[in-house]
Design a protein around this nucleic acid. Structure first.
Lengths: 201, 201, 201, 201
DNA sequence: CATGAATGAGGATTCATTCAT
DNA sequence: GATGAATGAATCCTCATTCAT
């Protein structure tokens, strides 16, 4: 039993190290981009040696893919949290208002841009992005089709997917475009957004 | 006068060379990204020597900045072309539908992503992007405020800027998000888009 | 006495571990060469941890030297087995015909080449090789000098060393050169070899 | 015409550089082996920067292959020079007697060992070695079959290839084995060698 | 003006070796 | 004894930039 425990401890430590490296990588990628962030810098940031990273990840690309997975998961979770009619506009605004998060586990706009740009070149990343996109869209579509009693909007199955697509586009657009100029009146924006959303849902 | 002419000819040639290099750079940047595209490849693509590039641009970063300028100008021109009520939805759809253009002088999504990602890190690029954004937005706002007789929508000055902001966000979002899944029914999308736009303009 | 026995058991186990490691190293060296075989791979092959190897060998070079010793001993044993007139040609052919042996304790051509190449650079290895060579040669010379009744050829002491040298050269040459093209008629080769050997012994 | 000349000069210089690098590489490979010789050392030895090497060779392996080609060509030329009855024994002895040559373009035993060892692992090298071996063997066989008036030995076509094989094996064996112990009486060795060769040719 | 050879700093990756557990 | 995580030096290779021609 003591051996079992020690093995578990080792496993836990292994996971912790992986996370340390992943977090450091995320920080570096956000600061410099996938390509410009060097393994040495990531190692420094993680407080480990450069060589050690290769015990946890096959190569730099594996780290990038892991970060992408993580980011897409976060993004998906965030989108999922939007499921609530009255607050939809607020939520979207909150979302697009968010500061670039230093803490791990949060979605980063810069990373999303980096990922999208990379997806145009790397088919593996492209596929990951497409998979995530499909999942998020169908979740949104399901939600829009649910009856109001179930927290949905009772949309017709014929239009729901398209509306989900547009909704996502608007969210993405606000996030991308809005991040650049934050002096927009939030209250007014919410009102305008609500008008648009009413045309959608 | 003959000397004058030859000087002009030289100037013209210089401009032509600059353009050649810039176009080659754009092609390479679209294919590989700012970082991964090497000066050697750009030189090859432009059909000039690597050394010659440094007669026209101080360094690689100067090329990147020039490309960014050019791309933002194109983007602005494209947005400007949207000024026409009845076709607004169509135009937006056409725009988001566009293939990644090989020809120079066209806006590239990949480049836009690359630029946006870079802007999060390089303040110089960030400023350029902000400047462009302001310009485009105020143009759009002006247009929305114009009377219908003048081809506008007669929007109130109090809401026009915000609507312009949202309009741009939608366009950007469609472009970014839509590029990933092209099997969306165009006709239906246009209808839905029109409904949203009616809430906006 | 029980302690004595346990100490002996421990010693035996130690020897067994050493052998395990050595065999694994030999396998790896044959597959990848001295330089390209990594300690990690050797450890894996031996089924021990990388760190443990350093309890049995000071460093990688010590392993290489141990392997070289072992291989030279094997080689010497093989040459010794040739001592029998009528079969000499057959034996040599058998020898040069041998497959590269996976089993430990057998001589490997690849290793011999590796060792010889290394000897040209490392004086320690060079000396080991020279020592072995001297020993084998004088054994061969002794044998050649023995009377036919004693199983020898009764060669004169004046020519025996030189003939031993030539005999070894032929064996080495056949081994090295022959290994590359195995479609040679064995029966004919034996006949030719016998003619040559008659000129030698 | 002046341009033509300058282009030729450039071509010549390019060849010269290639040779410089190749020679430096050969020196380093002889001193340290293919694997242990680093690109940095080769660059230093050649008196160029490390990066420059990659303008002349795709990678380190390409250098190794070039060296192998060169060495095999030299070896073949050397074997070809043996074509003369009365001096055959002398020539072989001279050959096996040769110092390890520092000058480029000469065959090196160490390199030959390195090549042979590498051939057991790298199929590309193995093929190169086999090709060369075939060529040398058939040249030797042709020569042995020529009439004495034509400088040959008039051997029967049925035995010539096998004799060529044995002759080469003896040469290789003497070279490899003999290189390790040079205090052998040359005069006596020649005599003995002649006896063997008479059994062969 | 134009070339492209040359540089050298920097990047990803590997691996012998050590050491806390 | 035994492990395997951790180190960091060394290696191959790339690429922006310079400069003699």
């Amino acid at each position: 039993m003591s051996q079992q425990t020690s093995r578990q401890r080792a496993e836990k430590r292994k996971q912790a190290q992986r996370e340390r490296i992943l977090s450091a990588a995320q920080t570096c990628f956000m600061e410099s981009g996938f390509h410009a962030a060097s393994m040495a810098t990531i190692a420094d940031t993680a407080g480990v040696s450069a060589g050690l990273i290769y015990r946890y990840f096959e190569n730099k690309n594996a780290i990038i893919l892991a970060i992408i997975d993580r980011q897409l998961a976060v993004l998906r979770r965030r989108i999922r949290e939007l499921h609530s009619t009255e607050y939809l506009a607020n939520r979207i605004i909150d979302y697009f208002d968010e500061e670039e998060p230093e803490e791990e586990g949060a979605m980063s706009l810069v990373l999303f841009l980096e990922i999208s740009a990379q997806a145009a070149r790397d088919p593996q990343i492209s596929r990951a992005l497409a998979r995530y996109d499909d999942a998020v869209r169908s979740e949104l579509a399901d939600w829009l089709q649910r009856s109001p009693e179930q927290g949905g909007y009772g949309l017709d199955a014929a239009v729901a997917p398209l509306r989900a697509f547009l909704l996502l586009s608007i969210i993405v657009g606000l996030k991308m475009h809005g991040a650049r100029d934050p002096d927009v009146d939030r209250a007014k924006l919410r009102k305008e957004l609500e008008r648009i959303l009413q045309a959608l849902v």
